[in-house]
């Protein structure tokens, strides 16, 4: 969702100068600060935590992607942009052939950074509690939190080990190949 916005901003140096620092600032903003608001919302409207805790995870990740895409779009050589203009490449063709490939390596970089943060956030987000309000989703994070609360040492080790294995496997099987592919095919020069 942030890709078109990032490309639009990145292609306009004037706008990028203003938006980029804001995106960077928001990326550093911990999602935790919004937890109380979210928990309050979920409890008040009796929403399903499994679904409605997800926005919290996504929130922390979007900004990384946004500012990487902005950087990618603004680093695109002006002659390439001029070439696309000169041959009147527009609309969907422009996105497909010019803009998306140009920012893909940056998108992947952003997504990798974001997934790291999102993973952590997801662990926390599965069990969000604020005062005596408590919402819980089903999953590893909730399991670890419960084990910790119960002082179940074996449970903690099992939970953390599983989490680490997940991270490694996902990195190896998904992000690495994607990054390598994007790097090889789409980097300039």
């Amino acid at each position: 969702m942030w890709v078109p916005v990032g490309v639009w901003v990145g292609m306009r140096p004037g706008v990028a100068q203003i938006v980029q620092p804001v995106a960077q600032f928001l990326a550093a903003f911990p999602a935790n600060l919004l937890f109380p608001v979210a928990v309050f919302g979920i409890v008040t409207f009796s929403l399903r935590p499994d679904i409605w805790l997800s926005p919290l995870m996504i929130l922390g990740t979007q900004w990384y992607i946004l500012f990487n895409v902005i950087a990618g779009a603004s680093l695109m050589p002006s002659e390439l942009r001029n070439a696309a203009q000169n041959f009147q490449v527009g609309g969907w063709l422009w996105w497909r052939r010019v803009a998306l490939p140009a920012v893909l390596p940056y998108y992947v970089t952003g997504a990798i950074t974001a997934s790291g943060g999102s993973w952590n956030a997801s662990i926390v987000a599965e069990l969000a509690s604020w005062g005596d309000m408590r919402v819980e989703a089903h999953g590893l994070g909730a399991y670890i939190a419960d084990a910790t609360a119960a002082g179940d040492f074996h449970g903690i080790v099992l939970g953390v080990a599983t989490m680490s294995v997940f991270v490694v496997v996902i990195n190896r099987l998904f992000w690495r190949p994607l990054y390598y592919y994007a790097e090889r095919k789409f980097r300039l020069g």
Binding site: N82, V89, G90, L188
Partner: peptide, 22 residues
């Protein structure tokens, strides 16, 4: 263009065809 300005992620054929696709 002086710097060629061809798209590195497109093949020779795709680069050449771009203007006609447009």
């Amino acid at each position: 263009f002086q710097s060629f300005a061809i798209f590195p992620w497109l093949t020779v054929f795709q680069n050449v065809a771009l203007g006609l696709e447009a």
